[in-house]
Computed example of a mutant assay.
Amino acid sequence: MFGKKNHVDIELNADVERLLKSARDGVLPIVEAGEPVLREQCVRYDGQLSKHTLHKLIETMHKTMLDAPGVGLAGPQIGLNLAIAVVEDHANGDDDGDPREIAEFPFHAIINPVYRPAGEKTRSFYEGCLSFDGYQAVRKRYLDIIAHWHDEDGKEHEEHLHGWPARIFQHETDHLSGELYIDQAEIRSLTTVENLEDFWAQDPVPTQAAKELGFEL
């Protein structure tokens, strides 16, 4: 559960309600790189919103994420400095044997998420961000993590995540600390999505990209 003595922050709750009312067809605009809110340490969520507002916020974040489309969305990406994010991804038959180890990752609202590595193995793949749209870069991340979070009802969760779901969780959790994936990416790997599709998408492991663009895996 969230803090036993938690109280709704009336002013913040009203601000969030106004934000939600500004959504068009339930979808909010996504904050782009360069806006200060993306570089702030988020405030831990401890019951500052009413249950009604929190559930409506999560529903709107989910719809905004799917509309983008994306597999994760963090509070700062809609201009909200609270440690709340949503994640969801689905595997299909074409993903069998994919070295990125894409796997089913059902919808979760992750509140106050943290993670720690479960082992020392890492993998480097291209990834992107809705706040840095149109580009991707290679980012090294832990292959396995222990993920910890609360859901919208305050229930605590801990789970071992592997492969692509682990990458998604790390990416969204990092947002809540003011970090963008590009901060620790291989900068020489940076490419437009169009060039990624034309030159590098056929090989999920960016071996050839590393050779021709001049970065190390």
Rank of each mutant, 00 (worst) to 15 (best):
H52K: 14
F2D: 03
I78A: 07
C129M: 11
G70Q: 08
V193M: 11
L196V: 02
P113R: 00
E212V: 14
D198V: 08
E158A: 08
A166H: 05
E59T: 14
E32G: 09
E17K: 15
P165D: 04
E179T: 05
T207C: 04
R24D: 14
A118F: 13
P206G: 05
L130W: 10
I10A: 15
G47D: 10
V193W: 02
E158F: 06
V16K: 02
I102K: 15
E158N: 06
I145H: 04
N6C: 07
H52L: 10
G72K: 00
D15M: 14
D198W: 02
F107T: 00
T122D: 10
A118L: 15
I182D: 04
K155Y: 06
A109R: 01
K140I: 07
A91R: 12
K155L: 10
T191D: 10
L19K: 09
D95K: 01
G119F: 11
F215S: 09
I58E: 06
A83D: 03
H162R: 11
R123C: 10
L54A: 08
L57T: 09
H150Q: 15
F105K: 04
D198F: 05
G47W: 07
G3S: 11
T192R: 10
D94H: 14
A83M: 00
H160R: 10
A83S: 15
T192V: 10
G154A: 07
A68N: 13
H7R: 15
L130E: 11
R18K: 15
Q184W: 08
V114Q: 12
I30G: 06
A83C: 09
H150P: 02
R44H: 11
L180I: 07
G97K: 03
R167H: 15
N92C: 13
A103D: 14
H160Y: 09
H108D: 05
P165E: 01
H55C: 09
A201G: 01
L217R: 07
G128I: 02
S22Q: 13
V37Q: 01
R44I: 08
D153L: 11
K140T: 15
D198P: 03
L176W: 02
L49D: 03
L54M: 11
P165S: 04
E179S: 04
V71F: 00
A137S: 11
D96I: 11
L80S: 02
D96W: 05
E88C: 12
F125T: 01
F105L: 01
A68K: 04
R123I: 09
V27H: 07
D153C: 06
E59Q: 12
D133T: 10
S131W: 00
P36D: 14
G128L: 05
E216I: 13
P113D: 06
C129W: 02
L217K: 00
Q208G: 01
G178M: 02
R139C: 12
K56D: 09
L130R: 06
G119T: 08
Y142Q: 14
P113A: 09
D89Y: 04
E120H: 12
S189E: 11
Q170E: 14
R188Y: 12
P69C: 08
K21F: 06
A201E: 01
A185L: 07
F132M: 14
L54H: 07
L12W: 01
S131N: 09
N81G: 03
D203M: 09
G119Y: 12
N6D: 09
W200M: 04
E216T: 14
H150F: 13
Y135R: 03
F199I: 02
T173N: 01
